[in-house]
Structures are given as structure tokens and as C-alpha cells.
Amino acid sequence: MTASLLTRPHATAPVRASRPRRRLTPGRPIPFGAALGPLLLLAAWAAGSATGWLDPRTVSAPWTVLTTAGDLIADGRLQDNLAVSAQRAGLGLAFGTVIGTLLALVAGLSRWGEAILDGPIQIKRAIPALALIPLLILWLGIGEQMKVTTITLGVLVPVYIHTHNGLRSIDSRYVELGDSLRLSRAVFLRRIVLPGALPGFLLGMRFAVVGAWLALVVVEQINSTSGIGYMMDLARQYGQTDVIIVGLVLYGLLGLLSDGLVRLVQRRTLSWRRTLAD
């Protein structure tokens, strides 16, 4: 090797002063960018109400909704219903996540597991929760059991689908590496399978947390005596638009918050990834 190959002259390249070349990345992240869309929506709503373009009988103004929320908190109804709802959603989410992950592992790691499990779960996926409720009421009654079961069924599907897909897309070269290092099944699972499926699992969780709140609406508006959905259904009977919107906003906020939480976990645990978004 000669020296000329290794030392690169610096002075020859002209310095490009003005515009850098257009790049294909989306550019710098916008500060508080995640809040921008919802805030714009809120502004449009406020403007519509202030100008009278939105009829207060069908859509209450943001400030009316805010005072109604204040009243509901003052007499304790909002907290009580929220606590009941949160417990249902949380339980369903926990059961659904565990069951969905286990099913995905079994189906992803064994041919028999896939042959037996994948079909029924795809069938469940095609059946809406609403259509299952009459049957679940006959089986489990109208109590908490039926509600949590419905949410669980709604949650386990996205967790299963995305975790299974994540598992299946683990590069076969890593499996070969595991073979060449004679990894035990446990180490293979912990070091290669689970971290490899984690991006898929977390994507499934993003669908699952929102899905848990969605399933909640369905179960709480049928034969229920407590919860946010019940509060909204009652308001419908009395024509209280503002209370309905309080419930809607609450669902929206809960969904946004839980999704944000999963995304935070995503960013923390997948910091090894370099993607278009970085």
C-alpha cells in the first residue's frame, strides 16, 4: 500500500456554501409534534362553536363540555365511572396480552401449534365483538365476567397477530447462529426469539390498548349500571349532548395516553433500531 492511498488531500473539494442536497429522510423532529394534530382539532371545534356554525343542541361547545366535566367531577360521578371502566379495561388488557403473547409463541415456535391455533384466531378476528356479546351474555351473564371476557377477546387478537408476525419475520440467519452456538431452548427464546419479536409485540400493544377502550364502549352500553359507557348511554336518553361529549373526549384522551405510553416503551426498548423516523 502506498501513502497516497491512505492520505486524502483536503483542499481539493470545493466547499458547498448554500443549499445542502435534498435528503430523503422526513427531516428534523418537530418539538411537541405529537400534540399538534389534536390541538388543531380542538381549535376547529372551538371556532365552530363560537361562530354558531355548530348547533349547541347537537354538539356542545368545548367550554360547556369543560364545565359539565367540572360538575361531574364535583359530584363524583366521573371518577367513580372512570375507575370502574379503567378496572375493566385494565383486566381485559392484562388477560388479553398474556393470552395473545402465549398463543403467538406457541403458534410461532411449533408447526403443530400454528396448525391448531392460527385458524381459530383468524376466525375470531373476522367476528366483531358486538356480534359475540349475545352469546357471551347467555354463557356468562351480564356481570363483570362477560365484560372482561369481551375486552380480553378484543385485545388478544392484535397482540397475537403482530407478535406472531414479529416472530415469523425473525431472520433465519439468527436461528442458524443459535444452532451454531448450540444455544439451549431457553437462551434461544430469551436472547433471540423474544427480543426479535418485541417490535411486533409492541405494535400489537398499540392496537390492543386502544382496542381495550373500544371494546369497553360496546360492553358498557349494554345492560350496564356503571362505567363511562353507561354514563354516556344515560345521557343519550336525557339528550345531554355535553355529557356524551365528555365521555367521548375521555375515551379519546385515554386512548391517546395509553398509545403514547406504549410508544414511550417502544422508544426505550427499541433504541438499537435505526429507522426512517430517527
Binding site: 443459535g178 436472547r191 426479535g196
Partner: peptide, 17 residues
């Protein structure tokens, strides 16, 4: 290819198994 697990730090890759 080096075939390192991208989700494990360098040392964890070395002591894998």
C-alpha cells in the same frame, strides 16, 4: 456477515451462549 444480534449490546453478543 458478522451476524450480530442487533438488539444485544456488543458484550452480550460476545458471551451469547
Amino acid at each position: 456477515d458478522a451476524r450480530l444480534l442487533p438488539w444485544q449490546r456488543v458484550l452480550d453478543n460476545v458471551v451469547l451462549g
